[in-house]
Protein backbone atom coordinates (compact mmCIF):
# COMPACT_ATOMS: atom_id res chain seq x y z
CA UNK A 1 0.00 0.00 0.00
CA UNK A 2 1.27 3.46 -0.87
CA UNK A 3 0.40 4.89 2.52
CA UNK A 4 1.95 2.08 4.56
CA UNK A 5 5.19 3.98 5.18
CA UNK A 6 3.27 6.98 6.49
CA UNK A 7 2.98 6.76 10.27
CA UNK A 8 -0.57 7.17 11.48
CA UNK A 9 0.25 10.27 13.52
CA UNK A 10 1.80 11.95 10.48
CA UNK A 11 -1.19 11.60 8.16
CA UNK A 12 -3.15 14.59 9.35
CA UNK A 13 0.01 16.72 9.31
CA UNK A 14 0.70 15.61 5.76
CA UNK A 15 -2.84 16.38 4.61
CA UNK A 16 -2.75 19.85 6.18
CA UNK A 17 0.69 20.52 4.73
CA UNK A 18 -0.42 19.47 1.26
CA UNK A 19 -3.48 21.75 1.43
CA UNK A 20 -1.34 24.62 2.75
CA UNK A 21 1.21 24.11 -0.01
CA UNK A 22 -1.40 23.72 -2.75
CA UNK A 23 -3.03 27.01 -1.79
CA UNK A 24 0.21 28.88 -2.29
CA UNK A 25 1.05 27.01 -5.47
CA UNK A 26 -2.28 28.06 -6.97
CA UNK A 27 -1.82 31.61 -5.69
CA UNK A 28 1.65 32.06 -7.16
CA UNK A 29 0.54 30.51 -10.46
CA UNK A 30 -2.42 32.89 -10.75
CA UNK A 31 -0.24 35.83 -9.73
CA UNK A 32 2.39 34.95 -12.33
CA UNK A 33 -0.30 34.73 -15.03
CA UNK A 34 -1.68 38.12 -13.97
CA UNK A 35 1.81 39.58 -14.02
CA UNK A 36 2.36 38.17 -17.51
CA UNK A 37 -0.93 39.50 -18.83
CA UNK A 38 -0.27 42.99 -17.47
CA UNK A 39 3.25 42.98 -18.92
CA UNK A 40 1.95 41.90 -22.32
CA UNK A 41 -0.91 44.41 -22.23
CA UNK A 42 1.60 47.16 -21.56
CA UNK A 43 4.00 46.03 -24.28
CA UNK A 44 1.33 45.52 -26.92
CA UNK A 45 -0.52 48.77 -26.41
CA UNK A 46 0.22 51.01 -29.38
CA UNK A 47 -0.62 54.24 -31.16
CA UNK A 48 -1.62 53.54 -34.73
CA UNK A 49 -2.45 55.23 -38.00
CA UNK A 50 -1.84 58.89 -37.19
CA UNK A 51 -3.63 61.09 -39.71
CA UNK A 52 -2.48 64.69 -39.90
CA UNK A 53 -4.68 67.14 -41.70
CA UNK A 54 -4.48 70.81 -42.69
CA UNK A 55 -7.51 72.16 -44.53
CA UNK A 56 -8.36 75.65 -45.66
CA UNK A 57 -12.03 76.46 -45.23
CA UNK A 58 -14.01 78.65 -47.59
CA UNK A 59 -13.85 81.61 -45.20
CA UNK A 60 -10.05 81.43 -45.15
CA UNK A 61 -9.78 79.74 -41.76
CA UNK A 62 -7.20 77.01 -41.48
CA UNK A 63 -8.10 73.76 -39.71
CA UNK A 64 -5.15 71.74 -38.42
CA UNK A 65 -5.92 68.35 -36.95
CA UNK A 66 -4.68 64.99 -35.82
CA UNK A 67 -6.56 61.71 -35.62
CA UNK A 68 -4.81 58.81 -33.94
CA UNK A 69 -5.88 55.34 -32.83
CA UNK A 70 -5.06 53.93 -29.42
CA UNK A 71 -5.03 50.14 -29.61
CA UNK A 72 -5.50 48.23 -26.37
CA UNK A 73 -5.16 44.53 -27.31
CA UNK A 74 -4.66 43.43 -23.69
CA UNK A 75 -7.14 41.80 -21.34
CA UNK A 76 -7.56 44.81 -19.10
CA UNK A 77 -9.63 47.95 -19.18
CA UNK A 78 -7.50 51.05 -19.51
CA UNK A 79 -8.14 54.15 -17.39
CA UNK A 80 -6.84 57.27 -19.05
CA UNK A 81 -5.06 59.57 -16.64
CA UNK A 82 -4.01 62.32 -19.05
CA UNK A 83 -4.22 63.07 -22.74
CA UNK A 84 -2.41 65.96 -24.26
CA UNK A 85 -1.91 67.24 -27.77
CA UNK A 86 -0.42 70.32 -29.29
CA UNK A 87 0.44 71.50 -32.76
CA UNK A 88 2.84 74.20 -33.75
CA UNK A 89 5.23 75.40 -36.41
CA UNK A 90 8.90 75.58 -35.62
CA UNK A 91 9.79 78.90 -37.22
CA UNK A 92 13.25 78.51 -38.76
CA UNK A 93 13.19 82.19 -39.75
CA UNK A 94 13.82 82.93 -36.09
CA UNK A 95 11.23 85.32 -34.75
CA UNK A 96 9.09 84.11 -33.12
CA UNK A 97 10.95 80.74 -32.90
CA UNK A 98 7.71 78.84 -32.43
CA UNK A 99 4.25 79.61 -33.75
CA UNK A 100 1.88 77.72 -31.43
CA UNK A 101 -1.38 76.87 -33.14
CA UNK A 102 -3.37 75.02 -30.53
CA UNK A 103 -3.38 72.50 -27.75
CA UNK A 104 -5.73 70.29 -25.82
CA UNK A 105 -5.44 68.26 -22.66
CA UNK A 106 -7.66 66.20 -20.44
CA UNK A 107 -7.11 64.58 -17.07
CA UNK A 108 -8.63 61.57 -15.35
CA UNK A 109 -11.48 63.70 -14.05
CA UNK A 110 -13.17 63.00 -17.37
CA UNK A 111 -13.27 59.28 -16.58
CA UNK A 112 -12.07 58.23 -20.01
CA UNK A 113 -11.56 54.50 -20.44
CA UNK A 114 -10.59 52.16 -23.26
CA UNK A 115 -12.15 48.69 -23.00
CA UNK A 116 -10.05 45.55 -23.21
CA UNK A 117 -9.26 44.37 -26.75
CA UNK A 118 -10.57 47.59 -28.24
CA UNK A 119 -9.36 50.47 -30.37
CA UNK A 120 -10.31 54.06 -29.69
CA UNK A 121 -9.81 57.00 -32.05
CA UNK A 122 -8.85 60.38 -30.71
CA UNK A 123 -9.33 63.44 -32.89
CA UNK A 124 -8.04 66.93 -32.23
CA UNK A 125 -8.61 70.03 -34.31
CA UNK A 126 -7.72 73.65 -34.06
CA UNK A 127 -9.09 76.56 -36.11
CA UNK A 128 -6.43 79.09 -37.05
CA UNK A 129 -7.42 82.57 -38.16
CA UNK A 130 -6.60 86.24 -37.59
CA UNK A 131 -3.15 87.15 -36.29
CA UNK A 132 -2.02 83.54 -36.05
CA UNK A 133 -2.96 82.90 -39.68
CA UNK A 134 -1.08 86.04 -40.73
CA UNK A 135 2.04 84.74 -38.96
CA UNK A 136 1.68 81.44 -40.78
CA UNK A 137 1.30 83.16 -44.15
CA UNK A 138 4.38 85.22 -43.37
CA UNK A 139 6.26 82.05 -42.61
CA UNK A 140 5.09 80.46 -45.88
CA UNK A 141 6.29 83.53 -47.79
CA UNK A 142 9.65 83.34 -46.03
CA UNK A 143 10.02 79.62 -46.87
CA UNK A 144 9.18 80.22 -50.51
CA UNK A 145 11.58 83.16 -50.69
CA UNK A 146 14.31 80.75 -49.52
CA UNK A 147 13.62 78.42 -52.43
CA UNK A 148 10.87 76.38 -50.83
CA UNK A 149 7.66 75.35 -52.51
CA UNK A 150 5.02 75.19 -49.81
CA UNK A 151 1.62 76.62 -49.15
CA UNK A 152 -0.35 76.89 -45.96
CA UNK A 153 -1.85 73.40 -46.23
CA UNK A 154 1.40 71.64 -47.10
CA UNK A 155 3.46 73.11 -44.30
CA UNK A 156 4.97 70.56 -41.97
CA UNK A 157 2.92 71.14 -38.83
CA UNK A 158 4.47 69.67 -35.74
CA UNK A 159 2.18 67.41 -33.70
CA UNK A 160 2.80 66.03 -30.25
CA UNK A 161 0.37 63.58 -28.68
CA UNK A 162 0.73 61.80 -25.36
CA UNK A 163 -1.59 59.47 -23.50
CA UNK A 164 -0.96 58.11 -20.02
CA UNK A 165 -3.00 55.82 -17.83
CA UNK A 166 -3.15 52.57 -15.93
CA UNK A 167 -4.60 49.12 -16.33
CA UNK A 168 -7.72 47.97 -14.56
CA UNK A 169 -7.83 48.51 -10.80
CA UNK A 170 -4.25 47.59 -10.02
CA UNK A 171 -2.71 49.75 -7.33
CA UNK A 172 -0.47 52.34 -8.98
CA UNK A 173 0.06 54.90 -6.25
CA UNK A 174 3.10 53.61 -4.46
CA UNK A 175 5.23 56.38 -3.05
CA UNK A 176 8.60 54.66 -2.92
CA UNK A 177 8.36 51.65 -5.20
CA UNK A 178 7.96 53.38 -8.53
CA UNK A 179 8.66 50.14 -10.42
CA UNK A 180 5.28 48.89 -9.20
CA UNK A 181 3.56 51.95 -10.63
CA UNK A 182 5.40 51.53 -13.92
CA UNK A 183 4.34 47.90 -14.05
CA UNK A 184 0.65 48.74 -14.38
CA UNK A 185 0.90 52.12 -16.12
CA UNK A 186 1.53 53.09 -19.70
CA UNK A 187 2.81 56.21 -21.40
CA UNK A 188 2.54 56.41 -25.19
CA UNK A 189 3.82 59.30 -27.26
CA UNK A 190 3.57 60.31 -30.85
CA UNK A 191 5.67 63.18 -32.15
CA UNK A 192 5.74 64.36 -35.75
CA UNK A 193 8.24 64.98 -37.17
CA UNK A 194 10.30 62.69 -35.00
CA UNK A 195 12.99 64.51 -33.10
CA UNK A 196 16.52 63.75 -34.25
CA UNK A 197 18.86 63.07 -31.36
Amino acid sequence: MAGSWIPKENRWALVLSVLFSAFFLVSISLSAVTYSKVTLAQQKMTLEDPLRTATLLGNGTLVVGLTILVNNPGDYLVHVATISWYTQIDNVSGSPPVIPLGSSSATQGLGLTIPAKDVRAFTFQVYVSGQKLSELKGYVNYKNSQGGDVNITTLQYKHSFEIRGWFDDFNHEYLREDYLNQLVEFDLRYVFPEAVA
Partner: peptide
Protein backbone atom coordinates in the same frame (compact mmCIF):
# COMPACT_ATOMS: atom_id res chain seq x y z
CA UNK B 1 8.60 20.50 -1.41
CA UNK B 2 5.54 21.31 0.69
CA UNK B 3 7.05 24.35 2.42
CA UNK B 4 8.78 25.75 -0.66
CA UNK B 5 5.54 27.02 -2.24
CA UNK B 6 4.62 29.49 0.56
CA UNK B 7 8.21 30.78 0.48
CA UNK B 8 8.00 31.18 -3.30
CA UNK B 9 4.67 32.98 -3.05
CA UNK B 10 5.79 35.32 -0.28
CA UNK B 11 8.91 36.28 -2.22
CA UNK B 12 6.99 36.84 -5.45
CA UNK B 13 4.29 38.75 -3.63
CA UNK B 14 6.84 40.92 -1.85
CA UNK B 15 8.31 41.88 -5.21
CA UNK B 16 4.99 42.39 -7.02
CA UNK B 17 2.23 43.03 -4.47
CA UNK B 18 -0.07 44.89 -6.85
CA UNK B 19 -0.49 41.97 -9.27
CA UNK B 20 -0.52 39.21 -6.66
CA UNK B 21 -3.43 37.46 -5.06
Amino acid sequence: LLSSTPVAFMTFEFMLPNVSF
